Amino acid sequence: MKTFKLLSIFTIIFSFSQCASLQLENNPPFKVSTASFINWSGGQQGVKGMNVEIHYSSNKTIEFDKIYFEDKVANLEVKPSRKNKLVVGFFSDNSEFLDTDKKEFFNLSKKEAIISYKEDNKLKYYKIKEVKQGKQVFYPSAPKQ
């Protein structure tokens, strides 16, 4: 019984410490200029997904990690861009779903996203308040041979 109590106490403490570590940053080392998403389909029957593009500026090199959007999680990839810097999250039908703890903590509306990045070897989170919808893209499937 005593072991069960101790285990319960440690579980509760660990849960609170996890929530405390997910604080959102107000002043990240970058500035988001635009964020938008497009739904895409094609290439093969039943294949579809969504790309979220985030244009930003910064004097520092930023190590982006993940994006949390529409109850899903995707890795962020830095892509070349002529104007601003660009990171993209690629979501597909089999993208990872946001776990319940983060879903409740983030409490995102349909137009909001959270991005995670590393600064001084610490994982930090920033909320993008408006992700605009772009046009849907259809990629025609390859011709049958």
Rank of each mutant, 00 (worst) to 15 (best):
F4T: 13
I9F: 13
T11N: 09
F14S: 13
F16Q: 08
F16M: 12
A20D: 08
S21I: 08
S21K: 12
E25P: 03
N27T: 15
F30Y: 12
K31D: 04
A35D: 03
M50I: 14
M50P: 00
V52Q: 02
I54C: 05
Y56P: 07
S57I: 14
S58W: 13
N59P: 10
I62V: 15
D65E: 13
I67G: 01
D71Y: 10
D71Q: 13
D71N: 15
A74L: 03
K79S: 10
P80R: 07
S81N: 15
S81R: 07
R82T: 11
L86K: 07
G89C: 08
S95H: 09
E96W: 03
E96G: 01
E96P: 01
T100R: 12
D101L: 14
K102Q: 10
F105N: 05
L108D: 03
S109G: 09
K110H: 13
K111E: 10
I114K: 00
I114P: 04
I114Y: 06
I115Q: 00
E119V: 14
K122Y: 11
Y125P: 05
K127W: 02
I128A: 02
I128F: 04
V131L: 05
G134E: 06
G134M: 05
K135W: 08
F138R: 03
P140G: 05
A142Y: 14
P143S: 04
P143I: 07
K144Q: 11
K144H: 09
